[in-house]
């Protein structure tokens, strides 16, 4: 995976509900149609002409971020977080507000004023404001309005040896994988690649897309948590960056099709790709929505392990992204050549 390809996707704006910019970038490359909620649906008919297995691959375009809810008298912007952002990363943060990417600051009073005897509490989102430099509501209204979205201001780049640091790796990494997968052909498969919206606020895009497509096989491409850290117990780490594609067995939204997981493992081993199982039952992704569409869809997820998920600077391995793409492509190819359909 080229760093620049992934970096361009990560740097694009696309907070849940405001996915236009990232969608346009992806659409330029992949084409497709946009549905009512804003999902980008790219359909590829079976190059072999059929009979075909109808496969839906999904990666979500949206990212966690901020929504301006009020312009304060003092010219600052009150905001809500969109999606699950740990409030501990907020103080001291630069964000970009609105389509023009106006810089804004989420700050706290200096440590000099703290009572040294008490350990300071985590700042509550309700107590924080975005400082855009305006000194009155009237001034702020010239540039900003309620409903503006803001993103982390992070600029993606290389980290250490072969890692990438960026905002929104969840799930632009999956988007990058899906774009890569679309470059190949899969005889025996009617392929529906869906770049979904509103995953971070309840798997809402995938739900309507799956309903429209009625897939026989669902596969979700995600960025998932790698809780690695100094002094952290192995059992708490969930996944490891650089250790290959992550296969989920279960999370809070779905239980993966065991047959699919078995085939994914076989495909990975045949292709000589390392893989790991996600060691946590928490979290959730579009698989929850796809698996419950219509009469139910056998669904699994392949994920890119990412550190500091939902933070301003998440970290993933470019090689992991490649491996997820290779595993996905190999899996879809096998589904097509063998006409595989799965049960739970």
């Amino acid at each position: 995976m080229e760093l620049n390809t992934l970096a361009r996707l990560c740097d694009a704006r696309g907070v849940s509900g405001d996915e236009a910019e990232i969608r346009d970038i992806i659409r330029q490359q992949a084409g497709g149609r946009v549905d009512v909620l804003g999902n980008l649906l790219v359909a590829r008919p079976d190059p072999a002409g059929g009979p075909s297995v109808r496969v839906m691959l999904a990666a979500h375009m949206d990212e966690v971020g901020f929504l301006v809810t009020h312009l304060e008298k003092n010219g600052r912007l009150r905001f809500s977080t969109v999606g699950g952002i740990d409030p501990r990363v907020l103080p001291g943060l630069a964000v970009l507000v609105g389509r023009d990417r106006a810089p804004g600051i989420i700050g706290l009073g200096p440590p000099h004023l703290l009572d040294r005897k008490e350990s300071p509490a985590v700042a509550r989102v309700d107590d924080l404001l975005i400082d855009v430099g305006c000194s009155s509501r009237e001034e702020a209204e010239r540039w900003f309005s309620v409903g503006d979205y803001a993103t982390f201001a992070t600029v993606a780049g290389e980290l250490g040896d072969g890692l990438v640091l960026a905002k929104a790796l969840d799930d632009r990494a999956g988007c990058a994988v899906l774009l890569e997968v679309l470059a190949e052909e899969y005889p025996g498969v009617e392929l529906h690649a869906v770049f979904t919206v509103q995953e971070e606020i309840g798997l809402r895009g995938a739900r309507v897309a799956a309903h429209a497509i009625a897939p026989e096989v669902g596969l979700v491409l995600e960025g998932t948590i790698a809780a690695e850290g100094a002094g952290r117990e192995e059992a708490d780490r969930v996944t490891a960056v650089g250790a290959g594609p992550v296969l989920s067995l279960m999370d809070r939204t779905s239980i993966a099709s065991r047959e699919m997981v078995r085939v994914l493992v076989e495909v990975a081993e045949q292709a000589g790709l390392p893989y790991q199982f996600r060691r946590s039952g928490q979290g959730g992704n579009d698989a929850g929505a796809i698996s419950l569409a219509l009469e139910g869809v056998p669904t699994a997820a392949i994920s890119v392990p990412c550190r500091y998920l939902h933070g301003p600077a998440s970290v993933a391995s470019l090689e992991d992204v490649d491996r997820v793409a290779r595993l996905t492509a190999a899996f879809v190819r096998r589904v097509g050549t063998e006409g595989l359909r799965f049960r739970y």
Partner: peptide, 13 residues
């Protein structure tokens, strides 16, 4: 000079 990020325990652990 090495780019880096300050890691901290994620809420789920």
């Amino acid at each position: 000079d090495l780019r880096g990020v300050v890691g901290h325990p994620p809420p789920h652990i």
